[in-house]
Amino acid sequence: MNDNPVLRIVAKIIIPMILIFGLYVQFHGDFGPGGGFQAGVIFATGFILYGLVFGTDALRSAIPAPILRIVIAGGLLLYVGVGVATLLMGSDFLAYNVLGSTPSGGQHLGIFLVELGVGVTVSAVMITVFLGFAGRNDP
């Protein structure tokens, strides 16, 4: 598919849109429908489309495996880290109230960070799964 100009051009046009939509779902999640999980999948779709059209090697050079690994771990760490932070600040695990100056501010920040962690991890895992399957037949 690498040599099909229509696909290449369309992909180049819609990939940024997909990514932006992913970010929207991510960050709008605490006000409207959405959230880290969905956003992560949508975000990953952009990369997967890139891999489908331009080849997995191109995708691999865009996001090397060690980076993916770090991102997966980082997202999870962010999530757990928030929980640990609340613990350290003297409250229960994931009791966000203590994070901000006001309880609602704390809730806001806490959910924002936790969802970000989820989104990052999910998208990185999705890309890894795609690479894992797509890479099977590579020499």
């Binding site: 690994r69 770090i70 771990a73 997202g75 999870l76 760490l77 757990v80 880290g81 640990v84």
Partner: peptide
């Protein structure tokens, strides 16, 4: 252990 797992990956 949940915290240690991603650390391990890093």
């Amino acid at each position: 252990p949940l915290l240690a797992a991603p650390l391990c990956l890093l």
